[in-house]
C-alpha cells in the first residue's frame, strides 16, 4: 500500500453556509494502481486530489503515504514530499508560458538542484519518450494542446516520482488526443510502476482505472477494482 485516506473531512465555509467538500472519505491505494476518480461537477474530486499532498489542508482525517502520516506534518515537509515523490498533471497543462518545452520539463530537476548537464540529458530522454524531440525549443503557445499536455506529462515524470496526480488531464482535449494521452499514462503506469490517481468525468477515461472511486457530494459512493 502506498497511499491511504481515513475519514477525510474537508469543510468550506461559503457565504455563511458550511459545505462538506469531502465528507468522511476513506480509501486505500496500492503501489502501481491506476486509480480513476469520477463524479459530477462539484462532488469534491479536485479537492481530494489537492488535499492528498497538502495543497489543501484537511478539516480532519488522516492521510498515510509510504507508511507515514502526512496530514499533520509541516508545509515545508509536505513541499519536500511533493518535490521528490509526486508529479502533477492539470487540465490546463500548467506550463510556464515564457519557458521553452525543454526548460519547462527541467523545472522539477532545477528544484532538486540537479546539475545542468544531467538536467538536459534527462529532459531530452523524457521528451523523446513522449515524442516531442522536435519541439524542444518551442514556447507553449507555439504548439498544440495535445503536445502541451505531453510536455506536462514529461514534466510530471522527469524526477521519477512514486505517484502522479492528474486532474482531468484530457478535459481540454478532443477524443483522439485524449486517447493518446490516456495511452501514455497507461504506459507510464505499466512500464515505470508509477502509481496514478486520475480525476476524470469521461467514462472512456474512467475505463483505464485498475481501481475506481466514484464521488458524490463529497462522499465515496462506489469503489471497485
Amino acid at each position: 500500500m502506498i497511499l491511504q485516506g481515513e475519514n477525510i473531512l474537508k469543510q468550506y465555509h461559503h457565504k455563511g453556509e458550511m459545505i462538506n467538500a469531502l465528507d468522511h472519505v476513506s480509501f486505500k491505494v496500492n503501489k502501481g494502481d491506476f486509480v480513476t476518480v469520477t463524479g459530477p461537477s462539484g462532488s469534491g474530486k479536485s479537492t481530494l486530489l489537492l488535499a492528498l499532498f497538502g495543497l489543501i489542508r484537511l478539516t480532519s482525517g488522516n492521510i498515510i503515504f509510504d507508511g507515514k502520516r502526512i496530514d499533520n506534518i509541516s508545509d515545508r515537509q509536505l513541499t519536500e514530499i511533493r518535490k521528490k515523490s509526486v508529479g502533477y498533471i492539470l487540465q490546463s497543462f500548467a506550463l510556464i508560458p515564457y519557458l521553452t518545452t525543454i526548460q519547462n520539463v527541467m523545472i522539477p530537476l532545477a528544484l532538486e538542484k540537479v546539475p545542468g548537464k544531467e538536467q538536459v540529458k534527462r529532459a531530452r530522454e523524457i521528451l523523446e519518450y513522449v515524442g516531442l524531440s522536435d519541439r524542444m525549443e518551442h514556447l507553449p503557445r507555439e504548439i498544440s494542446a495535445g503536445q502541451q499536455q505531453r510536455i506536462a506529462i514529461a514534466r510530471s515524470i522527469i524526477h521519477r516520482p512514486q505517484i502522479i496526480m492528474a486532474d482531468e488531464p484530457t478535459g481540454n482535449l478532443d477524443p483522439t488526443l485524449s486517447l493518446e494521452i490516456l495511452e501514455f499514462l497507461k504506459k507510464i503506469n505499466r512500464e515505470n510502476k508509477i502509481t496514478i490517481i486520475m480525476v476524470t468525468h469521461s467514462p472512456v477515461a474512467a475505463e483505464y482505472g485498475t481501481m475506481k472511486l466514484h464521488l458524490n457530494e463529497g462522499k465515496i459512493m462506489e469503489s471497485g477494482k
Binding site: 495543497l55 515545508r76 513541499t79 519536500e80 514530499i81 511533493r82 518535490k83 521528490k84 509526486v86 502533477y88 500548467a94 510556464i96 508560458p97 523545472i107 522539477p108 528544484l111 514534466r155
Partner: peptide
C-alpha cells in the same frame, strides 16, 4: 500568480 502556484505545487519552497 498561477506560475507561483504551479511552482509551489511542484515542490518549490517559499524560499524559492
Amino acid at each position: 500568480k498561477r506560475e507561483i502556484g504551479i511552482l509551489r505545487m511542484m515542490g518549490a519552497k517559499r524560499s524559492i
